[in-house]
Amino acid sequence: MNTVAPAPAPVALRRSVELTVDGDPVIAPEGTTILQACRARGIEVPTLCYLETLAPVNVCRVCVVEVDGSRALVPSCSRPVAAGMVVRTDSERVRTSRRMVLELLASSVDLSTAGSDVHRWIEQYGARPERHGPAARAADRDHAHAGHHEAPAVGAAATVAQPVKRDNDQYVRDYAKCILCYKCVEACGEEAQNTFAIAVAGRGFDARISTEFDAALPDSACVYCGNCIGVCPTGALMFVSEHDLRARGDWDESRQEVTRTVCPYCGVGCNLELHVQDNRIVKVTSPLDHDVTSGNLCVKGRFGFEFAQE
């Protein structure tokens, strides 16, 4: 943000701290996270539940690193750097945990529309989801009750499979693809939209994203801002426009151009990214790195483009 007039500096000048990452000395500003320090060094640390516009919830645990003096591994996305810290990002323990996090997810979640990074990591870390057995018969997850538990089917791996939810004109929710990264809950809640239409319900393996009593979205608090879809890393939440083009086999990102412009509605000045395929707008997103929107939009900006299509 720019200013000419004297403003109280929101962030005091930050000191730097020196730490060691994979044997090399690294200087990082105080208050930054291990993840940021690693990325600044070009060290790839896989992440699933992390997004730069949301406060870290550190639940996926795929970004763990080894820190000397810490009994357990440490989530790099949320742990601030400290002077003298010795970090290992590629130790045997780290690789095992990352492999297992990816394997456990891949053994229980449909990752077919997850980003290409996820599939690369699964390969790279040698996850073997198939060793847990064939998928068990889908359970009624929406009505699973905490503590009411049946013994698992012998020889099959429980999954989060369940029917696709399509109860309105703009969203498709396919929770068989949900890795429970909490991003949608955060975006719908305190981190952005503050509508709180969805939350994590149930617990343990039965934990799931849900409205109250699994109400259909039109009966919920949802205001269709699409900010949950904007942050979903696996395609569990998808716009109908994209979902249907994919279903028809017509979704082709290589034919799409993304153009940044300003929303045609109110005077706030939200930046839009228009995804255009064959001269048609097929999806609207918002840049994470613009401080007006930080990736968020409202229902008009997100969906109100049809007037411009032939």
């Binding site: 309105n168 004109d169 703009q170 979205l217 039109p218 949802c222 205001v223 269709y224 045609p264 509605y265 109110c266 409202c298 229902v299 008009k300 969906f303 109100g304 483009f305 049809e306 007037f307 299509q309």
Partner: peptide, 16 residues
């Protein structure tokens, strides 16, 4: 929330 002024722009999309 989901509409705009005289509705000529917002009338075109399927707002739930």
């Amino acid at each position: 929330l989901d509409s705009f002024n005289t509705g000529v722009q917002t009338g075109g999309y399927a707002s739930p």
